[in-house]
Nucleic acid binder design. Sequence first.
DNA 1: GACTTGACTAGAC
DNA 2: AGTCTAGCCAAGT
Length: 108
Amino acid sequence: MYALVRRIPSGRVVSYGQVAALVGSPRAARAVGQAMRRCPPGVPWHRVVNAQGRVSRRHRNPGSMLTQRLLLQREGVAFRREAIDLARHRWTTGAGRRRFDPEALLAW
DNA sequence: GACTTGACTAGAC
DNA sequence: AGTCTAGCCAAGT
């Protein structure tokens, strides 16, 4: 799963639910959130936001919420008020789009 | 193995 | 458009 998040290009974002779906567990959005909480170094965790395109308010450390937004803006992600324009910045696995990816599942 | 806890979500008011 | 609610599921107790 972290492998998947690492593939998110700069300036793009995905939702927790989307990550869950891409690794084969469409209903594990909350679990993805927990995984992000203990994110290993080298993973662009800030590119994962909630389904409304907003930075979640339930971070363990409230400071990281600000950091997340800052990093995204640095990558060119435009915030309209508090929300990101997902239609424009959502990352999709272009050609990928397969229903089940055993490799991604193992990465989880 | 039975709770509890969330960096979640879609749907209903 | 803002709030509530009921599912969810992996981890931690």
